[in-house]
Structures are given as structure tokens and as C-alpha cells.
Nucleic acid binder design. Sequence first.
DNA 1: GCGACAG
DNA 2: ATCTTGTCGC
Length: 228
Amino acid sequence: MELVPLHGWNLSPKQAVALQRELRERLILRPPPGLKVERVAGADISMSRGEDTAYGGLVVLDAGTLEPVAKVSAAVKLLFPYVPGLLSFRELPVLSEAWARLNVRPDVLIFDGQGTAHPRRFGLACHGGLLFGVPSIGCAKSLLVGGHGPLGAERGSVAEITHAGEVVGMAVRTRDNVLPVYVSPGHMMDLPTAVELVLRVTSRYREPETTRHAHRLVNEVRRSARGQ
DNA sequence: GCGACAG
DNA sequence: ATCTTGTCGC
């Protein structure tokens, strides 16, 4: 699939922060009118302890059956360190390579990380959605910023995530009596739609099937690339 | 200055 | 993210 030319990746953390402040102005925090979700994709990366190579992958699922219809992966040398708040600069170079190899366009892409639930409202899902030109959602396993009140123990229970007086996302219980996931819109998305979609692609496990498939894919790719 | 801190 | 054994619970 096509990439939207945004910028290079050889940046300092300082430059990355400045870029986030610029790029966030381009975000559209509402879904395209009449959005029909027939294909949902997940993205993830994997790496080994002392290695500097990252493996990135995307898996597109049929939204009705949740069966994979396309898988792509790539391996790239890591350029950027892990800095809380700047995760996209570490993960998107590899994911871009994988995206370029994809020949099926998903209607929505779910990232393993935050969307607007970010100190500058520009998490991985926002950056990725903008770069790939696709509606996107952030679905993280833990919070980066903000907090939320209690939520019911049943699947479907939610609680607003607030930060600096703003509602930036939603804690969502995807399974009864299991820790919630943290959902926030990325690009071309709003919070209610993001929550609805995450629940739609989550069934037997805490995390969306998209994320689980992508996670398995990149780990398989890394294991089979090991030693070569 | 002190802690918190997606993956 | 990754490194790892056992263990609690449905």
C-alpha cells in the first residue's frame, strides 16, 4: 500500500517531539462518513535482546470471520531508542516497510500502543494512521498518561481516561474479570467508534484478534530469521 | 527537584 | 520489547 510522505526517520528525540507537535494538527478525529469495516488489520513488532534488528508485521483480518486474509512482514535495523512518548519513531520505520508490501487495504488499523492518550495527543496510532493514510485505533495494555475511575467487571464496561482535564481515551473491559485495555483514536477515528471496533474484534482473549495475529506473525518471523 | 513512563 | 518456572484459575 501507499505511504503518505511525511518526513525522514533520522531524528533526535528533540526533533521528534517538535514533529509530533506539527503533525498532530493534521489529525482528523472522526471516522470517514459511512465507514464500512470489512477488513481490520493489526500491527506489531518484535526483537531479540541484544539485537538491533526489529521485525515488523501487519495482518489483515476479515471483519466478519476474523480470519486472516493477508500477512506481510519486514526486518529493519532499529534507528531510534525506546523513549516513552516517542514510540512511533522506533516502530514505524519497520511497519512502513511492511505496509509497502501489503496489497490489501484494511478499512481500519489497530496499533499496539496509544492513540490520543498521549502527552501531546500524538501516539503511535495517530502517527501511523497519518503515515499510512488509514483510519486507526490505539489499543494499549497499559497507560502512558492519564487515569480513570473504576469500571464494571463485565466485558463491555468502560471508564473515561482523562489527562490534563481532557478525555483522551477509554479503559475498556474486553473480557469478564480481566484487566482492561486502553483505547484511544488514532487518525480518521473517534473514541466511540474506536471502542466499538475494539470490542467487535475481541472475543476469547483480552487483546484484539488483530493484535494477537500480528504478535504471533512477527515472533515467527524473528524466530525463523534467527541464525540466518 | 521527584516520580512516572505505550513497547 | 525481551529474559524465564512455576502456578493459580476457569
